[in-house]
Amino acid sequence: MPVFSYLAYPVQGAKEELFNDLSALDYCEAMQAENKEVLILVTDTPDEKTEKALQKQLKTLKSLQSLGMTFGHTDQ
């Protein structure tokens, strides 16, 4: 049951769009910075298979430039 958090960097000018994209994904909670071009993403998946699938989905988001991890937890 992995839990991760990230700083999510949008592509130029796509902060709002990235927020919507991330919020629409299962197992994701997103939070926008009010005054900077960055978001926080917390993911909470039930198992590694779902985690891997989510990672794949994240890679397809056009509004996302890059992710910087800040926290990791797995119940192993």
Partner: peptide, 10 residues
Amino acid sequence: AAAQSAVAAA
């Protein structure tokens, strides 16, 4: 704690 870490890093 995960969210807090991200806030702290930001």
